[in-house]
């Protein structure tokens, strides 16, 4: 099984790379204003459109998609449960509550400061989730995601209440429902920090695989368990907060992509991390393109498209799992 995978792996990698490049090119080409490839170099307006709007939008989709998929993988590793991700375990909701409170009390704060505070809120919210998840009986794996959904719901309700009281409900929906239509040059660059976080995940890949074996196996192999937990939490919280603040939360990426990659090539994080990142980028990019095309020239937010697509993927995963025992 693994032998077959490794011999065909360069072919799979080439196919994945080509697919991602094709999605990237399509994303650059699709939009209300036509952008024929031949005119980009000759027509300054076309070049401007490409550099100010299409390219930033495409990069934002790639960065947030790759980041959220990695964040999902890390959360699943730390909680030792395949059914959690930032959007369903209180991380995104904590980030939303965080940025809402910052907007209420320090409306003049700059975007990086707001993001930092949102990341802090996400860190606190996720720590509480993981501390609770570890106390739930491991023999009942569905309790963890169920608890996460309820917990995230409670925090989300608090955010909604606060936003309603302060007449900021419209702001809140910007953070809770991912949408790339507002992405322009100068308004997405913070997302590059997500790329740094993904790089950090590569550095600790082996340690993440060992963390998935549990606390005792990790300590036995000489890993500083508490420290790795903190590193993982910081990566997850920063990526989620960046996504929430810059483009709004995109659900399901962190759930669907790591599960599909695990099905296909196993759980050795060093080998799968690149696939998870590429898969997340491709999925979000594809959903954003679909959102631009379905009601052309109007747009459907990527969060909505992803909700539908991710739900379908998740059902497929569940039924496939059942079928194979």
């Amino acid at each position: 099984m693994t032998a077959a995978l490794s011999t065909s792996s360069w072919r799979a990698k080439a196919a994945a790379g080509l697919g991602l490049a094709a999605l990237f090119a399509v994303s650059l080409a699709v939009g209300v204003s036509p952008l024929p490839p031949g005119r980009v170099l000759s027509d300054p307006d076309a070049l401007q459109l490409l550099l100010v709007s299409r390219l930033p939008r495409t990069l934002a989709a790639v960065l947030s998609g790759a980041g959220l998929a990695i964040a999902g993988l890390i959360m699943q590793t730390l909680s030792r449960n395949r059914f959690v991700e930032p959007a369903t375990a209180g991380t995104a909701q904590s980030a939303e509550l965080g940025i809402l409170l910052v907007t209420l009390f320090f409306p003049a704060a700059s975007l990086p400061v707001k993001t930092l505070l949102a990341a802090g809120a996400a860190l606190a919210g996720t720590s509480v989730f993981l501390a609770t998840a570890q106390r739930l009986p491991p023999a009942q794996p569905y309790l963890v995601p169920l608890f996460g959904i309820v917990y995230g719901g409670v925090i989300g309700a608090a955010a909604t209440y606060a936003a309603w009281q302060a007449d900021l409900l419209q702001f809140l929906s910007v953070w809770t429902n991912g949408d790339f239509s507002g992405v322009l040059r100068g308004r997405y660059e913070l997302l590059w920090i997500a790329a740094l976080m993904v790089a950090a995940a590569f550095l600790v890949a082996d340690r993440l695989t060992i963390m998935a074996l549990g606390r005792e196996a990790s300590i036995g192999l000489g890993i500083d368990y508490a420290r790795m937990m903190q590193i993982g939490l910081v990566i997850v919280s920063v990526i989620t907060a960046l996504s929430v603040v810059v483009v709004g939360m995109i659900p399901f990426v962190g759930l669907a992509v790591p599960n599909i990659v695990s099905r296909l090539m196993g759980d050795n994080v060093r080998g799968t991390l690149g696939w998870v990142a590429a898969g997340g980028a491709g999925l979000v990019l594809a959903c954003d393109i679909a959102g631009r095309l379905i009601r052309y020239p109007y747009e459907i937010p990527v969060g909505t498209v992803m909700g539908v697509a991710g739900g379908a993927i998740f059902l497929w995963l569940l039924f496939r799992r059942g079928g194979h025992g």
């Binding site: 196996a217 036995g220 000489g222 890993i223 196993g266 759980d267």
Partner: peptide, 21 residues
């Protein structure tokens, strides 16, 4: 911990590895 991990190894009772490794 890293130094000790080269001196002593432990296998706990009912270690659960539901892993695709």
């Amino acid at each position: 911990g890293r130094q000790l991990a080269r001196v002593v190894a432990i296998l706990r009772q009912d270690t659960t590895v539901a892993s695709r490794l």
